[in-house]
Design a protein around this nucleic acid. Structure first.
Lengths: 156, 156
DNA sequence: TATTGTTATACTCTATAACTATA
DNA sequence: TATAGTTATAGAGTATAACAATA
């Protein structure tokens, strides 16, 4: 029997929230939230893309992306334009404001991560990264990973 | 220069969200959210307590606790009663429903954590726990932990 | 028929500001 | 003056269901 972590959910939540709060404190003047920065980062990296691709990348429902884009369009981070080939779709483009602020946001994120990881060695950082990836992967399809004796609802 | 984790915020958020989704999927019939279960767990462990203590334990504002308790009172998880000694305060008590469901919720949490950590050794689990605690602690008072050359705003 | 995105609606978590009642 | 908790109000993330336009 492997050792358990009593309150893994609380630990993950607290660490995640601490990073979010710190980032949002440091970017308060721009009012960029962590999920917004994540979305912006994708369209800066991937280039203009439509909302269903963003929903896949962010792993949220299309309507959630739509609402985020509403807010981000309103605060001037990005704009919707008609898709040239598919008249149902719209492509999402960063504004000049977004391009201007992006390097600062990137630096702020790096700074927050550096602060967060103070005192952790390279190998501890690597172990953390692996563990977080493993958790998300394990729970993505929990039936495949879990003890089958407990899987009464896999045939739902 | 230590190795960075490119997207620590996203990794933490994804892992935290995966745990939350899995827990809430498994407790859907009761409609107990992760933050609600966490609050309930505190009052079951600590005994009846007032809202300001809960706000400290959960590290949220008193008004946030007040709102959570509104919802949880409405769905029958707990009740407010007048504090015997301090007429300003109220003590929060779990209902019979909460006491009945608690063992199942506890088992569900343990199961989710077990699923999440499949494939991780004891030492990897321990490293994860330490790292998550360190992140929350480092960011709790970031000025004390961070590289002072970057701390332009510590005198805010 | 399937896909893209939307409206309508709603819930949860979280917060700031202003306030009441009480200590 | 300080504390416990509230009302008022709001932003943000997330979701289900129903729908329009288009492929």
């Amino acid at each position: 029997m492997e050792q358990q972590i009593e309150n893994l959910g609380a630990l993950l939540n607290d660490a995640s929230r601490a990073v979010r709060r710190r980032f949002e404190h440091l970017t308060a003047e721009h009012g960029l939230s962590v999920p917004q920065w994540r979305l912006l980062r994708y369209i800066l990296i991937e280039g203009p893309c439509n909302q269903s691709i963003l929903a896949d990348l962010l792993d949220v429902e299309p309507i959630s992306v739509s609402r985020m884009i509403d807010r981000m369009e309103q605060s001037g981070w990005l704009k919707r334009e008609p898709h040239p080939d598919d008249r149902r779709a719209r492509i999402i483009l960063p504004t000049d404001k977004a391009r201007t602020i992006a390097p600062q946001a990137r630096a702020t994120a790096a700074r927050v991560y550096a602060e967060a990881l103070v005192g952790l060695s390279d190998s501890q950082r690597h172990a953390l990264q692996s563990a977080l990836l493993a958790i998300a992967a394990n729970l993505y399809n929990p039936a495949a990973a879990a003890d089958p004796r407990h899987e009464n609802e896999t045939t739902e």
